[in-house]
């Protein structure tokens, strides 16, 4: 078990990027259509660099084997049950499930709030968008590391799936986060089932063998 963990642990995610192009896209920029002034370009670059200084990427992972499967739910070997027809359909050929929770911490959103209080709304909007880009890149990074690891064993991954998608209710997110141990990295949900810090993502991934049915969507 420990060796199994160790093979995955070579990877790190501390150098998460916030690329300029991704940030522009997140702000609604369309190439060859949207007009950019030097002032805006400089401002976006300044805030992008600020974001890089104040994000704190963290990740919590869990994995378990699939024990039972029905049309409306799946059960893992640790007793965790996910009740959702859509999840059940997506993971029907999987033997193992990963749970991932990532966050970039609270400092970025604190700074966004600070900008709002000071009525520097442009800075707030750009910084908020930078945070979204960063957390998205973080989960993509973790996803690709898991994919690389599983590919060595001739396994494939399903797409990522999160509470709130399809018929998997958003209020089930808390149970998912508990399984993943997301509290350890500072993620929790409020009464409205909103994850805090705001720039956090939780998801599950299924693992199946390469010779399994191709009806399962793969990344």
């Amino acid at each position: 078990m420990f060796c199994y963990h160790k093979r995955m642990l070579k990877y790190n995610f501390n150098n998460i990027s916030i690329s300029y192009d991704e940030l522009l896209k997140r702000l609604g920029y369309i190439q060859n259509k949207t007009y950019l002034t030097k002032k805006i370009l400089t401002l976006i670059e300044d805030i992008r660099l600020l974001a890089l200084k104040i994000i704190h990427p963290k990740c919590s992972l869990a994995y378990a084997n699939l024990l039972k499967f029905s049309k409306t739910s799946i059960m893992l070997d640790n007793g965790y049950v996910i009740t959702s027809c859509d999840v059940s359909k997506l993971f029907q050929h999987c033997f193992k499930i990963y749970g991932i929770a990532v966050t970039i911490g609270i400092d970025l959103e604190k700074k966004v709030h600070d900008f709002i209080v000071k009525r520097e709304l442009v800075n707030a909007v750009i910084l908020d968008a930078a945070g979204s880009v960063a957390v998205e890149n973080l989960i993509v990074n973790i996803h690709s590391q898991i994919k690389h690891y599983e590919n060595i064993n001739n396994n494939l991954l399903t797409k990522r799936y999160s509470p709130g998608y399809g018929d998997w209710l958003l209020k089930r997110n808390e149970a998912l986060l508990n399984w993943i141990g997301a509290r350890e990295i500072g993620i929790y949900v409020n009464k409205s089932y909103q994850m805090l810090p705001e720039k956090s993502i939780s998801a599950i991934l299924g693992v199946n063998k390469k010779n399994m049915s191709l009806s399962t969507k793969r990344i």
Partner: peptide
């Protein structure tokens, strides 16, 4: 003792 990672609720230092 290496960079920590959280797996199955356990912090591992490799």
């Amino acid at each position: 003792a290496g960079m920590p990672i959280l797996i199955n609720n356990e912090t591992i230092f490799p």
